[in-house]
Design a protein around this nucleic acid. Structure first.
Length: 187
DNA sequence: CACAGGATATACT
DNA sequence: GTATATCCTGTGA
């Protein structure tokens, strides 16, 4: 099991280390294959302009989930990192579905396992993550994180869906995975 | 395959 | 009012 201390580091260490880690919510989830680093000096980050009601969790201690509403429709989940109070967090962008496939198919209304969790909004719908999970610790139920068993090959790519600092190479993914979000999927 | 457009909470001008 | 750390569906090449 991965404990809270795992997140008590810089986002640039945590983000690549999350690739290959198993992430479950209520027993449903899979291996993280894509993650993206954000911190307070990043103009594209929510915490860039200071603390608000929505992003308050980002300014709290590491090891907690920051969940926010995107484009008024989707939920996205981050893990808060150090240093404390700096609004540093890693966005979980894609999973390789492994546990609770039937539940995820039902929630997503899809069959194709490649479409279940291949994006931050999609994986939150598949795992049932909502505002209720914002501010919850990641080392307690319903969250469950397990160490990776193998060292994955990690690639970096440009960030998408934002207009500022798009060239910062802070998007990490497992090389060649078939479960990545838009822009990184092979072939 | 590549686009355009819509849904609509939250924050900022 | 405008933009956004998104996704889905429709249209047309």
């Amino acid at each position: 099991m991965i404990g809270r201390e795992f997140f008590a580091r810089s986002v640039h260490e945590v983000a690549p280390d999350l690739i290959g880690v198993t992430f479950l919510v209520g027993g449903v989830g899979g291996r993280i294959v894509e993650a993206e680093a954000y911190h307070h000096e990043d103009p594209a980050a929510h915490g860039y302009r200071g603390r608000t009601e929505r992003n308050a969790t980002m300014f709290g201690p590491p090891g907690y989930a920051y969940v926010y509403r995107s484009y008024g429709i989707h939920w996205c989940v981050n893990v808060v990192c150090e240093p404390v109070g700096s609004a540093s967090a890693v966005l979980i962008r894609a999973l390789e579905p492994m546990h609770g496939l039937e539940v995820m198919r039902e929630r997503r209304g899809l069959d194709d396992p490649r479409a279940l969790c291949s994006g931050p909004g999609k994986l939150c719908q598949a795992l049932g993550i909502t505002r209720e999970h914002d501010g919850l610790p990641l080392d307690r139920p319903p969250f469950e994180l397990h160490d990776r068993t193998e060292e994955p090959e990690i690639v970096q790519g440009p960030r998408i869906g934002i207009s500022k600092a798009v060239d910062l190479p802070w998007r990490y993914a497992e090389a060649g995975s078939r479960y990545l979000s838009r822009g990184l999927r092979p072939r």
